[in-house]
Design a protein around this nucleic acid. Sequence first.
DNA 1: CTTCAGGTACGATGCAAGTCGTACTTGAAG
DNA 2: CTTCAAGTACGACTTGCATCGTACCTGAAG
Lengths: 125, 125
Amino acid sequence: MAGRNLVGPEADALDLGAVFRALADEHRRSVLTELAADRSDSERGCNSFDLPISKQTQTHHFRVLREAGLIDEIDYGNRKGIRLRRADIEKRFPGLLTLLEAEPPGGTAPRRAQLSTPEGSPSRP
Amino acid sequence: MAGRNLVGPEADALDLGAVFRALADEHRRSVLTELAADRSDSERGCNSFDLPISKQTQTHHFRVLREAGLIDEIDYGNRKGIRLRRADIEKRFPGLLTLLEAEPPGGTAPRRAQLSTPEGSPSRP
DNA sequence: CTTCAGGTACGATGCAAGTCGTACTTGAAG
DNA sequence: CTTCAAGTACGACTTGCATCGTACCTGAAG
């Protein structure tokens, strides 16, 4: 068949845990945010995302996204195409892409939250 | 004010990355799934979840969930209460709790996906 | 008071994951 | 053919994180 080349899980087999693990990484989440924002779902080159990481790491991240069932990777040998599996995601996890679409394009800073009882009503005076 | 005790981020400051990182763990996701399934949003004891991990690890997980803004922890010194921040989550990430609610109670097995080009149309014949 | 269960703080440990260097493959261009 | 850019495979390194052991704190019960 002509279409998907490097395959991921079927639409019904998408695992929410794998999806959350995939989207836990900032770079992978930015890729999905960009893909979710483009409603045409056109095939994109993997270097069309400006990821500040090396080629090998990009390969790793796209692989994780594919194994989570979020994207298709079309292998042209020399080049690679990326396509969002919007229909499958919407069918299995309706509303998920909307959450990503609503995110600011730059993404949120990975600051870490405060550690303990800063204000309000502390436990011990 | 009387209500929240150990505080997390404000409703508008909830970070999608922190939420995904929190829900990437199987134990934390099972806690949120249980909380999302109970529409009464009643306060629960932290040992009401049957987590097969030690006390210290449970403390760690509830802390991560609180810092992600998903739960409130009410400290009674001797005991601790857990409450889902349903309104804040629904306001900031509408549909997220629905995704968790639709999950099977046992959760999906943490199997790892296949590694590469298993079938379909392999790149090299 | 002492005892006890629930919870936390701190540190150590083991494993998973993100990152990159080197080398190899692929297809197009010359 | 050779050259070159894009991508991958393999391995090493480093960081992050889940887990638990020990010790300490808290409040209730006796």
